[in-house]
Computed example of a mutant assay.
Amino acid sequence: MPLASLPAPIAGRNRMTRKMIVDAIRSDPSWRGGDYGDTQPTQGLTTALYVLTWMGSCPLQWQKECPDAASADAFLDRRVQEGLRTTDANNLLYQVASSADYDPRPLLGRIAAPLTAVNSADDQVNPPELGLLEAGIGQVAGGRAVVLPISDETRGHGTHTYAALWKDELVALLERSGGQL
């Protein structure tokens, strides 16, 4: 049961934002080819965290949480400061860059088990308007694509971490599987 993903290569805006993150870190003179010791390349990492924040944003929720300039600025500052405190630049770079050759398309038709792919309509990383989810899952014999509508509960790309939102789809998949797993 893939969550918050697409059965397609990383391309378009998704690829561009990932490249921005990688380039921000690598272009910081303090990165030193990844050998920066205990002093993070703060300028590049800050830019990468800005891009990552936008990439994983959820406009409906953030508008509610930050209805004015002061709360929006404070929210962003907290996110970036927390990220600078807890994120290693090399780890982030390698996590983001590792998807560069991702392309499940050639093997989709070989999936024999029932499959339900779940995304959310407010996922800016995997936006439903691209139609890639349905096109790819259409190649899976027992495949089903589900796009959760934007709601007060969804959290953009982060919706995948809220099992309450997709647990019914998991139960249905397990029932549909009938011991095939």
Rank of each mutant, 00 (worst) to 15 (best):
6 L>R: 06
7 P>V: 09
8 A>S: 12
13 R>S: 07
15 R>W: 05
15 R>A: 12
15 R>Y: 00
17 T>N: 13
21 I>S: 03
21 I>R: 02
22 V>L: 09
22 V>K: 05
25 I>C: 04
29 P>W: 01
30 S>R: 09
30 S>V: 08
31 W>M: 04
32 R>Q: 07
32 R>P: 08
32 R>C: 11
34 G>N: 01
35 D>F: 07
36 Y>P: 10
37 G>P: 08
38 D>T: 10
39 T>G: 05
40 Q>K: 04
41 P>S: 07
42 T>G: 06
45 L>D: 03
45 L>W: 01
46 T>N: 02
48 A>Y: 00
50 Y>A: 08
52 L>Q: 14
52 L>G: 11
55 M>C: 11
56 G>K: 15
56 G>Y: 13
57 S>F: 12
59 P>H: 08
63 Q>K: 12
63 Q>T: 13
64 K>N: 14
64 K>V: 13
64 K>G: 09
68 D>I: 07
74 A>M: 09
75 F>I: 08
75 F>L: 10
76 L>T: 13
77 D>Y: 11
77 D>H: 14
77 D>L: 12
80 V>M: 05
80 V>F: 04
80 V>Y: 04
80 V>G: 05
81 Q>C: 07
81 Q>E: 07
82 E>L: 15
82 E>C: 13
82 E>S: 15
83 G>V: 06
84 L>E: 02
86 T>A: 07
87 T>L: 07
87 T>Q: 03
87 T>W: 01
88 D>Y: 02
90 N>D: 12
92 L>H: 04
92 L>V: 13
92 L>P: 04
93 L>C: 07
93 L>W: 06
94 Y>I: 12
95 Q>G: 13
95 Q>Y: 09
95 Q>S: 13
96 V>D: 02
98 S>I: 06
98 S>T: 08
98 S>Q: 04
98 S>N: 08
99 S>D: 07
100 A>S: 13
100 A>M: 05
100 A>W: 01
105 R>M: 14
107 L>K: 14
107 L>V: 15
107 L>F: 14
109 G>H: 05
109 G>Q: 06
111 I>S: 01
111 I>Q: 02
113 A>G: 03
115 L>F: 01
116 T>Q: 01
116 T>G: 02
117 A>T: 08
117 A>L: 08
119 N>K: 06
119 N>A: 12
119 N>P: 12
120 S>G: 11
121 A>F: 11
122 D>A: 10
123 D>Q: 09
126 N>Y: 15
127 P>H: 07
129 E>R: 11
130 L>W: 10
132 L>M: 12
132 L>R: 12
133 L>P: 01
136 G>R: 10
139 Q>S: 14
141 A>R: 09
141 A>D: 05
142 G>C: 00
143 G>C: 06
144 R>Q: 10
150 I>R: 12
150 I>V: 14
151 S>R: 07
151 S>E: 03
152 D>S: 03
153 E>P: 09
153 E>V: 13
153 E>W: 09
153 E>D: 15
155 R>V: 11
155 R>W: 12
156 G>N: 05
158 G>V: 06
160 H>F: 15
165 L>K: 03
167 K>M: 10
168 D>R: 07
168 D>G: 00
173 L>H: 00
179 G>E: 03
181 L>C: 11
181 L>V: 13
